[in-house]
Write a protein that binds this DNA or RNA. Structure first.
Lengths: 157, 157
DNA sequence: ATAAGATATGATATAACATAACACCATAAT
DNA sequence: ATTATGGTGTTATGTTATATCATATCTTAT
């Protein structure tokens, strides 16, 4: 759970404003749901939590649209390998967005977002370019077991 | 389309035999469907092609089970980011299976399986271990545009 | 202030991907 | 020959995602 949700929301408003798009209340609420979760959530789980947190049941179609918006504005990431969504860990950071790399724990479902080392990415790109391929999304998703689950031998879910 | 399907099938039989499991006719046929496709296929697409190639309609449930088997025996890969399946490019190779890396063209859907450079993987692992995380599946899926589509400006699908 | 247009959301239906649970049959092991 | 195992079929259902059209709300020009 992020330290300072208010500050992140504030930053999100600013980012949207400078992109000329609107962070509506519902979009903001969806972002808040994600910010309040320690694990990434599916669109359907967002519907449930939205209802609990804000007392309103949104159609899943709307959630998908809002997620698309938030992803577009780089406030949310989609984990393709898990079909789940999570808030970007760097909304309130000053530094530039780099290639995100997600370490997904297959036991507890938690995800750590770390920035991939510049030179590793450069090498990856180089070895890829030699095949004529051009990278697009630039996002790595790696599965494994997090420190906490290793220490506690939590069973896989 | 692989050069020599017969040889790959032969190797697959040998691999299964030495693992003490059986490559049944239907499992072999599913593998043949994948070997005959230039792009990865979904389970439902395999049902369709199986029918065309072998004149029999298998329930998708059975296809999923056969895919599980083939994946277990490392004859087939699942592309998690695309929910599609493809035959391993290295069934008939002598060299050891390394960390596979898939370059997925978002325009034509073709996929190139290349082995990630040893030292890049080592570096990735090192930077990950510093977070306490332990890697599991070790498979990279990278999206972009293949050489052919760049040259021909094929529209995205 | 209001109409026209644009953007955001709601509602309904359906497509696409995946698994659970149980039945049946063939073959292998005893 | 009997039993155990593994492979496949069948049915039902769960999960993720998109298409389409309707409605609401917001903006902006007049």
């Amino acid at each position: 759970m992020p330290d300072d949700i208010d500050r992140i929301i504030q930053k999100s408003y600013e980012a949207c404003a400078s992109a000329g798009v609107k962070l509506t209340d519902k979009r903001k609420n969806v972002l808040m749901v994600l910010l309040g979760s320690s694990t990434p959530l599916s669109a359907y789980e967002i519907v449930e939590r939205y209802k609990i947190q804000f007392g309103e049941t949104l159609p899943v179609m709307s959630i998908y649209r809002m997620l698309d918006f938030l992803i577009q504005e780089k406030l949310v990431h989609k984990l393709e390998t898990a079909s789940q969504y999570m808030s970007c860990a760097h909304i309130a950071c000053e530094h530039q967005h780099e290639t995100p790399q997600f370490l997904i724990c297959d036991r507890c479902g938690s995800v750590k977002e770390i920035a991939i080392k510049k030179h590793i990415m450069t090498e990856l790109e180089r070895s890829i370019q030699s095949t004529g391929f051009t990278l697009a999304h630039q996002q790595l998703e790696l599965h494994g077991v997090c420190k906490h689950c290793q220490d506690n031998s939590v069973p896989a879910n």
